[in-house]
Design a binder for these strands. Structure first.
Lengths: 184, 184
DNA sequence: GTTCCCATGTAACCCGTTACATGATTTT
DNA sequence: AAAATCATGTAACGGGTTACATGGGAAC
């Protein structure tokens, strides 16, 4: 019975399970272009979690010496680790998470800005959303071609981000239309 | 020139500015039904920030003794505080924030679940989204009636949440349709 | 008479971050 | 000659959390 562990521990466990025999460095790269969008972790934290997972016996670390690149540790889930992962996935505590939007925080106080400031704030937000949308679209398209369950799950999570970004872009249109009506 | 301050400091500053002459207790209640949706803070943190804002001279604290309820401290932004707030609002660093979804994290590893688990995970998420949607709708409706700039900004931020929840609900429909085609 | 509301606070913890260090190899 | 890639780590910090304490008045 493991003590309270942060969700990030399971995130890394799942990652090792998904991409076995990878180094921390490689896992960081994968994390950075996959679940960083809904569960970002720093490089330092990733290495700490790998250490913890090894101590718990949920993953094994193997030293892999190479000729021209530095030696590296590669990881792999144990049977115990896979069981823990399955239990966590089956668990009912899926509601966890957090959301903090610097944009909304400022926008909430928009009545203390002049019209020009509000517009530039909105435009900055729009640009960020467009980048997000394009990125999610690219990921979804790329994974569309790969017909595996792993890619399927990834594609649908990307689609979640895509739909969210689209809806928020539509919201900025809505807001701009309202602001346009009301001259400063 | 203030040192690095977390965004939460400005969140509380804006809150005091928005609801002057309120106690920490009252501010916590307001925060809990307004910006907790996009910038939640704990009660402890709120009190700490009020203390910090007072020390910085951005708000003033006044003791207000009462007859049948306990005495309380009430807060009010100073001229300096209002200037700082305006500067922060005008600043370009609106991109800050964070997003972590326990649901997406699990869904990303859905290929390690059986079909029934995936369905119940989705249903749990759906229910949470419906609650969110209803809450945002109620807030937007309530603020619609109030014709002030403050209420207007609040209404639009609620609309942002509403549109997001709607889009994500539509996404769950999309996913369920796909899963329905593929029998377990 | 227990439970809820008001009102403020303390203590302890740790997750997660940024910044920095190292060093060999490969590319520009 | 400089910069990027591979690869792992240390040090220090702090923001934010949960849990707990207190205590009087009001409400059920």
């Amino acid at each position: 019975m493991p003590p309270h562990l942060p969700e990030s521990t399971y995130a890394v466990l799942g990652l090792v399970d998904k991409v076995p025999d990878s180094s921390g460095y490689e896992l960081a790269a994968v994390a950075d272009r996959s679940f960083t969008h809904f569960w970002s972790i720093s490089q330092t934290l990733l290495y700490r979690e790998l250490e913890r997972l090894t101590e718990l016996g949920w993953v094994t670390a193997t030293r892999d010496e190479q000729v021209r690149t530095p030696g590296k540790w590669t990881y792999r889930t144990t049977a115990a680790g896979q069981q823990v992962l399955a239990d966590w996935l089956a668990g009912p505590d899926a509601a966890k998470g957090s959301f903090r939007s610097g944009f909304l925080l400022k926008f909430f106080f928009a009545y203390r800005m002049d019209a020009g400031q509000v517009r530039s704030l909105l435009q900055e937000y729009r640009r960020a959303l467009q980048l997000q949308r394009d990125e999610f679209e690219a990921i979804a398209d790329k994974l569309e071609a790969i017909r595996t369950p792993e890619a399927g799950a990834g594609k649908l999570t990307a689609l979640h981000g895509l739909r969210t970004a689209e809806a928020r872009l539509a919201w900025t249109d809505e807001v701009e239309a309202l602001l346009g009506k009301d001259p400063p």
